[in-house]
Simulated scan of single mutants.
Amino acid sequence: MASSTVSTQIQLVNRPVGWPTNADFRTVTVDLPELTAGQVRVANEFVSVDPYMRGRMNDVKSYVPPFALGETMTGAAVGRVVASATDAFAVGDVVTHAYGWRDLVQEDAAGFRVVPELPDVALSAYLGVLGMTALTAYVGLLEVARLKEGDTVFVSGAAGAVGSMVGQIARLKGAKRVIGSAGSPEKVALLTSKYGFDAAFNYKNGSITDQLAVAAPDGIDVYFDNVGGEHLEAALASFNDGGRAALCGAISLYNSTDAPVGPNNMTNIVTRGLTLTGFTIGNFWSHLPAFSAEMADWLASGQIVFDETVVDGVENAVDAFLGLMRGENTGKMIVRTGNLVVN
């Protein structure tokens, strides 16, 4: 199996103020050196773009270091080994890793994990339904929000990669009613027709608080927050006593240049005995084996379905990311690198 040694990579060159633009990035080509002992070279087939990456473009303290200016960005990716200088990996192995934003990567073997090829499942699934995205939904709902059978669940950003998984897992785990919000009529229809939500609404159609009250006349017990802002305020208004929220993201605030305004009903946390818990997936990797086994069964039996929005060409990764931030994706936003592995 032969491979090129020229890697096309995307780098951050400016710290975006407000919405990122193409001018904040550059595309470079890098000639990779000969492999040294313990290294592998991987042709990425798919790379991931995710909302959390917007935060890493700012030079602020967070749960992961910011992207360095003038250096290639990182993120989840899946590909095949095309050259190996270690017995731990064979040419042709499928691997997942964190060296995204490029079509060809060469690093120490410790940074890669071999995964099986599943029948009739594209490798891109390892970036979504079989990867960090769905694991985030799984642990956020079950471990952080402590879903109980009979709960009513509200999910913001429900047609996205994480939200669409949260809704389906909630139903499989015994939720009584699952409600989602999305930003277009098409996405709202998809939530109830494909993902099994009991009710859904378009948050652009008026007061989120009022729409949630109609969709959940008996209140909600669990809120999975991908959006923040007005969605969190609506959840606080709708919570039953003892409600629990898993705070996963706040995409409505990521590109704002104004100081964020908190919900105006925070006293409900006290009066209704609510628990709001923020989390990041890095603290929950120990749940990966249980998640992987359960999700593989759900996927094989057709109990879980998923969508991907695929952008072709690693050189278009920035456009894919900007589209993701504008809500142009249904399900997981994926970049197909266009790599051709030649046997």
Rank of each mutant, 00 (worst) to 15 (best):
W285G: 08
S252N: 06
F291S: 09
A246W: 04
F306D: 03
Q303L: 01
G282Q: 10
P289H: 11
T267W: 15
S286A: 14
I281Q: 07
S256A: 14
Q303T: 00
T257L: 12
T309P: 01
M295N: 06
T271I: 12
I269G: 00
I304D: 01
L253Q: 15
T275E: 12
C248F: 05
T277W: 03
R272A: 12
R272W: 04
G273N: 13
F291I: 08
R272H: 13
A300Y: 00
G273Y: 10
F284P: 04
H287I: 00
N265L: 10
S252L: 07
N265D: 11
V310F: 03
G249N: 05
A245P: 02
T271D: 09
G302A: 02
V270E: 02
F279H: 02
N264K: 14
S256M: 08
G282R: 09
N265S: 11
L276D: 01
H287L: 09
T271V: 12
P263I: 09
H287P: 03
S301A: 12
D307M: 00
S286D: 10
F306L: 00
L253D: 14
T267G: 09
F279S: 05
W285I: 06
V261H: 13
P260M: 12
P263S: 11
G278F: 00
T309M: 02
A250W: 11
D297W: 02
T280E: 06
M295I: 12
D297C: 02
G273W: 10
M266G: 08
I251V: 15
V261E: 14
D258A: 15
Y254K: 07
A246V: 04
F284W: 13
A290H: 11
G302P: 01
L299V: 10
E294W: 07
A250Q: 15
